[in-house]
Design a protein around this nucleic acid. Structure first.
Lengths: 209, 209
DNA sequence: AAGACAATCACCCGAAAGAAGTATTTAAAG
DNA sequence: CTTTAAATACTTCTTTCGGGTGATTGTCTT
């Protein structure tokens, strides 16, 4: 019989226990093997360089940089890298950003391990896999306009408790312009006021507290 | 030589991979054994009734109820239960509530597994263990006055994007009273306005989005 | 070149929010 | 039985916010 080489996996997560769980799961599968672990974005890039895993499982929030940034760093160097996000539920914007940046899959830590194995195999075979829970969350806000970079800056400043006048000073624009930005933000997010806008922005992963 | 009975552990977390990691870690220790797992608060209570574990590891956010509520439910029935919170970082208020409600320890998922084992042994021996990272976070807001239940209700309503008038209607009080509550909230949280109050409330674990 | 969009600024106006003070009622704590 | 704390309510005053309308500039796309 012909022996197929095992799928070599890299796990990136700042929770040792989670990595341990992934390692146990992976190494119990005959056709998979865990080749490395990383607890931060930098470690992830180094680990990828060193081991060239077939599939990388990447958490979204890491101590040094976001998982998306870490993924982009890897993809710049290895465009054919197969990376799957594995995270607790985040807003639809995070999901979208991850997929646009080149993630081959998006898994939730609450999913059954069998789904995880399934997606790893599919991604290794060159496919993309987005589970229905994630896809439907994504579809929820399909038509919605995205905030511009400037609007996100303003929203962050609002979330920090700044008045319009303070935001104007910090961004070197007039208070009137700030108001226009906030008006657009509230329209795009369907928010009733600035506080609601911040809450929605956080829920959807547009900003972080 | 006398054989000491192993420490029997129950793990409560809605992430299967995390539970798997805990199980692997525990079962690799000669003096510990994993007797059950639970993915929700209800399962946790049932699992405790059935197995009477020596130490219970409990996540803070579960699908059906908060980990603190689940812990309180268990403690009502078994006051001598030894429960340790094991979670990602939450606000100081969550930590305080957990400890006041009877948690014997508070661990972060980002800590090294050896710390976890250490705390389990200490708690099993009847001690309480709060790691320094957690303790210092707790000390940060030691002098601060806590929000009253009513104030938390109002803050939740603010976070939902309600105007003062709407809050007044929903809580069956006058708009003036709502203003007084919000003034007190902002003073206690050192917030510059209602939006800041919501942001701080979320960061400190007083409310959730 | 035309059109679309993002970012900028201005002026007006009414609605809301926030600051400060006073006061009553009830409930808990001493 | 006081004292304290929480929740309630009202008045006055100032500041801030948010809606509407309109305009300019630069960039990018078609």
């Amino acid at each position: 019989m012909s022996k197929v080489p095992a799928i070599r996996v890299l796990s990136v997560d700042d929770h040792p226990l989670l990595r341990e769980g992934v390692a146990t799961l992976i190494n119990n599968e005959p056709d998979m093997t865990m080749v490395a672990e990383a607890a931060s974005g930098l470690e992830a890039v180094q680990g990828f360089r060193e081991h060239k895993p077939d599939v990388t499982l990447m958490d979204l929030r890491l101590p040094d940089m976001s998982g998306i940034d870490a993924m982009m760093a890897i993809l710049r160097e290895f465009p054919e890298a197969r990376i799957v996000m594995l995270t607790t539920f985040e807003g639809d914007v995070e999901i979208q950003r991850a997929l646009e940046a080149g993630a081959r899959g998006y898994l939730l830590k609450s999913m059954p391990p069998s789904d995880l194995l399934d997606v790893i195999r599919q991604v290794h075979a060159g496919k993309k896999r987005i589970p229905p829970e994630v896809a439907s969350q994504l579809a929820e806000h399909m038509g919605d306009e995205l905030l511009t970079q400037r609007e996100i800056e303003v929203l962050r400043a609002v979330a920090d408790g700044n008045r319009n006048r303070d935001i104007a000073e910090k961004l070197f624009i007039s208070e009137e312009t700030v108001k226009v930005h906030i008006k657009h933000i509230m329209e795009k997010l369907h928010a009733s006021d600035r506080t609601d806008a911040v809450a929605i922005g956080v829920r959807r992963g547009i900003i972080h507290l």
